[in-house]
């Protein structure tokens, strides 16, 4: 266990430079922004000279780059950057929309796990049969289907044709909040009607977002399971007289090591898919907020959102690495 602790400390230490790197890239993105957004924010071509000047001063647009960097990073950290479009602190706007995006990604992730894992195992156990071929084709179609296309296709079926799902707004949150993710909170606090409402609103977008991941995971589970089962230690287990099911358990645990990594990556690409999914299903999450921000040249918001996405992504990777170390004793060194 001492090894595990040491590993955790070391891994957390490498987390810091990555975070600094993220802020640097975000800053570079901000720095490329042409100098005239001030005019746009001040109200377009008709904007008065003073208003523009005031905005330039407020957002430090005339300062040297290190000052701008510090202004931006400290502003994001202390939530003191005001969105020129909504006149709210940027982080405030984002934190309102964060639960929607997070909930969407979680539901998609659950879909991936529930469908991808069993499909992968079945196709490994039935390798080189028609089951295997179907899973393989399903995986390839999954990664090839544009999210927006699948989204509208499913909308056409479930909304236009049969009215099974609903597109308006987002259901209320349960009164007591634990994780600030309504669907989890309502389940934990026993508000099943709210849970149902959220599920009814989110299952279709979640499925759409997770569609690509299911096949990818299934293929990956299949391959790593087959790889694990061809290991020498599996033969030795059989030679020891260990029953089949227990042999499979060993193989599965060994296969889990790479699977955990892929699941982490999957979560990252799920996050990437949220802007499109939210746009298709009119969900008021961070993704659709980012798209609105782009349409209005609302650069502080774009930057803040990029930053938040990166933080979630990097944190996910951190969790994956920790899980990895918990499963595989070799990693702790």
């Amino acid at each position: 266990m001492a090894n595990l602790k040491k590993f955790l400390v070391r891994r957390l230490l490498t987390f810091i430079p990555t975070l600094i790197g993220v802020t640097l890239i975000v800053f570079v993105i901000a720095y490329v922004i042409p100098a005239n957004p001030a005019k746009a924010w001040a109200g377009g071509e008709k904007a008065s000279e003073e208003a523009v000047k005031q905005i330039i001063a407020e957002y430090h647009l005339d300062q040297p780059w290190y000052d701008q960097y510090w202004f931006l990073i400290s502003g994001l950290a202390t939530n003191s950057i005001i969105d020129p479009r909504t006149s709210n602190p940027v982080m405030g706007d984002i934190s309102e929309r964060f639960p929607v995006t997070f909930q969407l990604a979680i539901i998609a992730f659950v879909f991936i796990l529930l469908l991808g894992l069993p499909l992968g195992l079945v196709s490994a156990l039935k390798r080189n049969t028609w089951v295997d071929t179907i899973v393989r084709i399903f995986a390839l179609i999954g990664v090839s289907t544009p999210i927006f296309w699948l989204g509208y296709l499913l909308l056409y079926i479930f909304f236009v044709k049969y009215r099974i799902t609903d597109l308006a707004g987002v259901p209320p949150s349960p009164p007591t909040q634990i994780f600030h993710v309504p669907i989890i909170d309502s389940l934990l606090t026993g508000h099943f009607t709210i849970f149902k409402q959220h599920f009814a609103r989110f299952w279709l977008p979640g499925f759409t977002l997770g569609f690509a991941g299911m096949g990818v995971l299934a293929r990956f589970v299949r391959n790593s399971f087959l790889e694990a089962i061809s290991g020498d230690y599996i033969e030795f287990l059989k030679a020891k007289g260990v029953p089949k099911l227990k042999v499979y358990r060993h193989a599965l645990k060994n296969a889990l090591v790479p699977i955990v990594t892929v699941l982490g990556l999957q979560f990252g690409s799920l996050l990437g898919g949220t802007p499109i999914t939210e746009t298709v299903f009119s969900l008021p999450g961070m993704g659709s907020y980012a798209i609105d921000a782009i349409r209005n040249l609302d650069f502080p918001a774009i930057i803040a959102i990029t930053f938040i996405y990166a933080i979630i992504f990097v944190t996910t990777n951190l969790i994956v690495d920790i899980l990895y170390a918990v499963i595989d004793p070799r990693v702790r060194y």
Binding site: G231, D232, Y233, F236, L237, H250, K253, N254, V257, I327, D328, P329, R330
Partner: peptide, 10 residues
């Protein structure tokens, strides 16, 4: 090969 005869995770 004793290096691969044992399951590394147990």
């Amino acid at each position: 090969d004793p290096h691969s005869s044992l399951d590394p995770l147990y």
